[in-house]
Design a protein around this nucleic acid. Structure first.
Lengths: 354, 354
DNA sequence: CTGAAAGCGCTAACAC
DNA sequence: GTGTTAGCGCTTTCAG
C-alpha cells in the first residue's frame, strides 16, 4: 500500500493533488519541477555544481511544498550521522551542566548534535547507555570518568570511533582524555589550609560508592595531610551523590558533634561547603573566625556568599570545550591520542583567611 | 567500489577473513550462520515468532562478530526515529536543567532519545534549531516558551508531530501546553508581601529583551501592585539573561541607591535574590529586619541560605514529567490537545517574615 | 551542468 | 518458523 489516498483513482494529472499524509520528499520536489532528484539534492547542498537559476527554482519549489530535508536517509547513505554521544552522571549538577553546555555549543558550531545520556553515577546504567548510543552510530563518544564495566570498555574499544574520557585521569585510558586530577585538587586545598596554619583539618564528603571523583578528592586529602604530617582521620560522609547543600549542612552537624575542635574543613563540593557554612551561621559559629571552610567546583555560590568561599576551579566549561576540540581534530583525521589535563586552580577567598 | 578491501582477490572462503573496516551488518551475521537476514532481524527483536534455539545461535554469533544494531537504517525503513527534540534557552540554569533532567529520564523510560538544543534566549536561534531538528525527524518536539518567529511557528505547525510548549501559557498555542503562569507567580509573591504589611515593594529584574518569562513576572508584579493600590514603579534591571547572583547583587546596590526606603524586594529569580541578600549582608543590612527579600524558582540555595528565602516553586521537574507524559499519550494516538497548568506555589521562609 | 542506476542496512509484506 | 522481494529517501558513481 504505497499510498492510502482515498476513494479517487484519478491520475495525478487531473485536478488538485490529493492531500498527502507523508511529508514531501526530494522526488516530489523534483517532479513538481520536472527535474531529477539529483538536481534537487545538489540544489540543497552547497559546494555542488549546479546552475544558479535551477537552484533558485528548486529552493522555491521546496519551500512551497513545505519540503524538509530528511537527514535519516542521508545519514544512512553517507554513513555519517553527525551525532556525538555524551554521557554524564547527571544534569542536576552545575559542573556537569556547564561542561555539557560548553561542549554542546562547541559541537553545534561543528554541525554536530550531542546525544545526551545520564548514567546516575552507575556503571551498569552507563554500559546500557553506551550500547544504546552506539546503535545510533555516533561519530564520537564522550564519557565521564575512567571507570567502566568490562563490557562497556569493550564496546567503546570496538566501536572504532573517537572516545574521550573527561573529568578524570584514568591510568588505562580507552582513547583521548580531558583530564582533571581530583586528588590533586584536594591536595592544593590542604596545602593552602596548612600554610594558613590550620592543623586540625577535616574532610567532608566523598564517601559515596558511585562517586569516583569525590572519592579521589578524599584520597588526595588523606595523602596531602600525611605529607604535611597531619592526622587525616577527621572525615565525615555526605551520603549518596549528588552532593547537596542540605547534605553538607547535615555533615557539618555530624562533624561538629564528632570533632568539635576542628579548625578547618575541606568540602567535596561548594554545595556541601555552602551547606556547612549555613549550618555555622545558624549556630552562630564564625567563619572563618572559629572555623575555616573550603569548597570545590567554583560554583557561582562560592563567589557570592558571605564570606565568599575558597574553592578549586575545575573549569568545567574548559573541559567541555577541550573535549569538543579533541572530537573535531579526531574527526578531521588526527589519529594520535590526546591527553589534556586541566590543572585545578585554587581560588582563595575570605572563608579560609585567618 | 563496494569494498576497498586490500590486495587479495581470494574468495572469502579461503583463509582468515580479511580485516573489515566497516562494522558487521545483519547480513554478516546471517551469512556466518547460514540463515537469512530476516531471521537475524527477528532474533534481535522480541515479539517476533522465531525458534528459541535459532535465536540463541543468532545472539551468540552477533556477539562474537561484535555486531551492533544500526538504528539509522531501521529508522529509515520504519519511518520512526525515537527522537524527541527538546529546545531550552540554556542549560546553565538550574530550572531548565531540572526540567531537562526529568524530561530526559521520563523519555528514556519510553525508549525515546532527546535531541537537546539551546536557543540562548533568542527566537532566531530557536528558528534555526527547530529547522535543524526537524531534519532529524523527531517524533515530537518540546519548545520553551510561546514566542516564536513566524517561520518557526509555521515549521512547527506543518511538521505534523506533537508540539509541546512548556514554561509558558501562550494565548495562541501551537499544540500542547505544559504551562506555568509567570505573571501569576509574581502576583502571589506581592500578595504575600502586602499581607505582611509591606508597602514600598520593589521588583528586581525581568527587563531583558530576550527573557520573556522574566518580563511576564515583572508585568505580574505591576498588576498585583496596582490591585493592592501600591506604587509599582520601584523596578531595577539585572541585565541580560541568564540572571546571576552577581547581577542580583549589582541590582540591589542600584536599588538601594535609587530607592533607599524600600521595605521589600521581589526578585526575578532566587539567584538574583541570593545576590541581593549577600549584598545586604556585606553592608550590614538586616534581612528581613530592615528589608525583606523574595525570590523565584525554589532553587536549592533558597532553602539553604540564612535567612532562608521565600520563593515560588515552579516545579521544573514536574513540568518535565508532564511534558513527557503528553508526548507519550500523543504518540500513542491521543489526538486531543492537552493543556496542563502547573500552579505556582508560594513557599514562605524567614526572609520575608516580619 | 544534469540524469540514470545502484545501494546504504534494515524491516513490512507476503510467500512457503 | 523461515525466506524472498521490495523499498524507506537520500547520495555516490558514472555517463552524457
Amino acid at each position: 500500500m504505497p499510498a492510502g489516498r482515498g476513494i479517487s483513482a484519478a491520475p495525478p494529472s487531473a485536478g488538485a493533488p490529493p492531500p498527502r499524509r507523508r511529508p514531501p520528499t526530494m522526488q516530489d520536489v523534483a517532479r513538481a519541477l520536472g527535474v531529477s532528484t539529483m538536481t534537487v539534492s545538489r540544489a540543497l547542498r552547497d559546494g555542488t555544481s549546479i546552475n544558479a537559476e535551477t537552484r533558485e527554482a528548486v529552493l522555491r519549489a521546496a519551500d512551497e511544498l513545505g519540503y524538509v530535508f530528511d537527514s535519516t536517509a542521508a545519514n544512512l547513505r553517507r554513513q555519517r550521522t553527525g551525532f556525538v554521544a555524551v554521557l554524564i552522571p547527571s544534569i542536576d549538577n552545575a559542573n556537569f551542566a556547564d561542561t555539557v553546555g560548553a561542549l554542546s555549543a562547541a559541537l553545534a558550531a561543528q554541525q554536530l548534535q550531542p546525544l545526551l545520556g545520564a548514567t546516575a553515577y552507575d556503571p551498569r546504567q552507563e554500559e546500557a547507555l553506551v550500547e544504546q548510543m552506539l546503535r545510533r552510530r555516533p561519530e564520537a563518544i564522550v564519557v565521564t570518568g575512567g571507570r567502566h564495566t568490562a563490557r562497556c570498555r569493550r564496546l567503546l574499544e570496538t566501536a572504532h570511533i573517537p572516545v574521550v574520557e573527561i573529568w578524570d585521569n584514568p591510568a588505562a585510558p580507552i582513547g583521548h582524555i580531558v583530564g582533571f586530577s581530583n586528588a590533586r585538587s584536594a591536595e592544593i586545598v590542604v596545602d593552602h589550609l596548612a600554610a594558613q596554619g590550620f592543623r586540625r583539618i577535616a574532610f567532608l564528603g566523598g564517601d559515596a560508592a558511585g562517586d569516583a571523583r569525590g572519592r579521589q578528592r578524599r584520597e588526595g586529602f588523606v595523602a596531602a595531610m600525611r605529607r604535611h604530617g597531619l592526622e587525616p582521620s577527621r572525615r565525615v560522609a555526605t551520603g549518596t551523590p549528588p552532593v547537596s547543600m542540605r547534605s553538607g549542612a547535615l555533615a557539618m552537624r555530624d562533624l561538629l558533634a564528632r570533632f568539635p575542635d576542628t579548625e578547618a574543613v575541606a568540602c567535596v563540593s561548594d554545595l556541601a561547603a555552602f551547606g556547612a557554612l549555613s549550618e555555622c551561621q545558624r549556630r552562630g559559629i564564625r567563619v572563618p573566625g572559629a572555623i575555616a571552610i573550603a569548597g570545590f567546583g567554583n560554583f557561582e555560590i562560592a563567589e557570592s556568599c558571605v564570606p565568599a568561599l575558597t574553592t578549586v576551579d575545575p573549569a568545567p566549561r574548559q573541559i567541555g570545550r577541550a573535549a569538543a576540540a579533541i572530537v573535531k581534530r579526531a574527526l578531521a583525521g588526527g589519529d594520535r591520542r590526546e591527553t589534556i589535563i586541566i590543572e585545578p586552580v585554587l581560588i582563595v577567598r575570605q572563608s579560609t583567611i585567618r
